[in-house]
């Protein structure tokens, strides 16, 4: 019996060694371990084994089954591994990818978002106002006299009913102060319009970012510190800039901010990037007249305001040479910003 089991084992292992695929694996398994298989038949012979040998034969039987089973399993695993390898062997990993469509945001959105992120960290909340404005919000309340050149029909888009397309986002200063009492700390991104023929440096509609802070003791030093922080966050800690005295009807004192631009291969030059100043008391007085209260008493509150052109900021940040690229939506241009 023991000899018979040895023979079965030898035969089984030889058969297993000859296995080439899953079908022959199954054949061999059935031939030895199936219901009518060699080992199963041998096991059936256990009942004829004398009692004193049963223990030895039983042990042998288990050893042989174990040997055959593990050889089958090993061969099976080997077959699967080979099949797996074969399944992926045909893949040419050097082929290009199966592409997914790629999209991206407009450069102006990116620039605006940069600016908004920084200003929100500084405690500014967003504000907005209509783009079709009244003359009062766009000019009168901003201390711009009726015969100011900016109010010419040659410079500003008007409607038959006397309203106009706002020429700056500064009108949102007025809209905000009409509704809210100090402290007011807002930024207002948005479109503004000027009656300019479109060319490389002019658009009839452009984008601005306005800022306003009104409280009891807001100073020019605060304005300076705020804009310095802002521009250093945007352009880097080493950014050089200067505040140049300037004139705006609605701020006094007024300044323009220049940053020093270092473009490759050219001498560094100062580029105007923002206008700013302390809110003119005449603006507070006019807002107060409209509100009919003393919330903006020019004797009690001070404030600063600033405004910058986002299109210009985008031109500087990305080296965009022509403003028209920003409104043409050529995908070859847009895809550079993702």
């Amino acid at each position: 019996m023991l000899a018979q089991l040895d023979t079965i084992q030898t035969e089984a292992l030889a058969a297993i060694a000859g296995i080439t695929d899953e079908a022959s694996l199954e054949e061999v398994r059935i031939a030895f371990l199936g219901k009518k298989g060699g080992l199963t038949a041998a096991a059936a012979g256990m009942r004829d084994v004398p009692a004193d040998q049963k223990k030895d034969v039983g042990q042998k039987l288990n050893e042989v089954r174990e040997a055959i089973t593990s050889a089958l399993e090993a061969t099976g695993a080997d077959l699967i591994a080979k099949k797996d390898a074969a399944a992926f062997a045909s893949i040419d990993a050097t082929l290009p990818s199966r592409p997914l469509p790629k999209g991206g945001l407009h450069p102006l959105t990116l620039v605006l978002d940069e600016a908004v992120k920084v200003l929100r960290r500084m405690g500014f909340a967003l504000a907005e106002g209509p783009e079709i404005e009244t003359e009062w919000h766009c000019f009168d309340a901003l201390n711009t006299p009726a015969d100011h050149p900016a109010r010419n029909e040659s410079d500003t888009f008007y409607f038959e009913n006397g309203k106009l397309l706002r020429t700056h986002t500064s009108s949102v200063q007025i809209r905000t102060m009409e509704k809210e009492v100090p402290p007011v700390r807002i930024i207002a991104p948005g479109s503004a319009f000027r009656r300019d023929e479109i060319d490389a440096t002019h658009l009839s509609a452009f984008h601005q970012l306005e800022g306003l802070y009104v409280d009891q003791r807001v100073t020019l030093a605060d304005l300076k510190g705020t804009l310095e922080y802002f521009f250093r966050e945007i352009f880097g800690a080493k950014t050089e800039f200067r505040f140049r005295p300037h004139f705006f009807p609605f701020t006094e004192p007024s300044f323009e901010v220049d940053i020093k631009l270092h473009a490759a291969g050219r001498a560094a030059k100062w580029i105007e990037i923002a206008g700013c100043g302390m809110v003119d008391p005449a603006v507070f007085a006019e807002v107060g007249r409209k509100r009919g209260d003393a919330a903006y008493d020019p004797e009690k509150v001070t404030g600063f305001a600033f405004g910058m052109g986002l299109d210009r900021l985008a031109m500087i940040m990305y080296g965009i040479p022509d403003l028209r690229l920003l409104i043409e939506n050529d995908v070859r241009f847009l895809q550079q910003f993702r």
């Binding site: 999209g103 959105t109 009839s204 409104i327």
Partner: peptide, 11 residues
């Protein structure tokens, strides 16, 4: 989703 953002003149 593969979209590019456009910005057109409002006029």
């Amino acid at each position: 989703l593969g979209f590019h953002e456009a910005r057109n003149l409002k006029l």
